[in-house]
Amino acid sequence: NRMHLVCPMNTSPHVNPHKSGHEVWEEFSHSFTPAVREVVEFAKKIPGFRDLSQHDQVSLLKAGTFEVLVVRFASLFDVKDRTVTFLGGKKYSVDTLRAMGAGDLLNSMFDFSEKLINLGLSEEEMSLFTAVVLVSADRSGIENVNSVEALQETLIRAVRSLVTKNHPNESAIFTKLLLKLPDLRSLNNMHSEELLAFKVH
């Protein structure tokens, strides 16, 4: 009987012990649904995304929503104060969340958020990078890999061009940014394992 939900996409990590597992899950789902809808709205605005087959649009969103949310909500992880702000607006320290059962994923999220924020990207750069995260041709279940790959390459070229223009003296930024992609995959896998543990409980 797990009593805490340590994901910041929740309003609070505290779970009402009188609620059933199903009710807890419904409440959590209600909490993260608006953020997922925002990811879908963002995807719709990526030039070319709506031209992909409906099947591939759904597959990309299913596989990449978590990673997009990690990028969009990196600022919830305050590296300096070692706190996490939940959607309800309250901050919780790492120690508190650890005591509630948070594991390695929490540390990895802090590491990722710190490195991403330290790149000092503009809103436009971050937005284009987020599009690259979402449009990845190697996600499972893609039926028209060539179309997704072509769109991904266009988006990568756009990010490179923008980052090179905005940071002419920092040639490594684009490389560092691309290296965030495998980091996100790794976080996604860890997150799936945590979800499995949650469902099993």
């Binding site: 789902s29 879908v40 759904v58 969103l61 596989a63 929503t65 997150h191 979800l195 499995l196």
Partner: peptide, 27 residues
């Protein structure tokens, strides 16, 4: 647990959000 998105109910939310505009369009 090969498809965490489906287990989360994500696919439903995604499909509805993707198709939402079509569904809301008046006949």
């Amino acid at each position: 647990f090969s498809d965490p998105a489906s287990n989360l109910g994500l696919e439903d939310i995604i499909r509805k959000a993707l198709m939402g505009n079509l569904e809301e369009r008046p006949e």
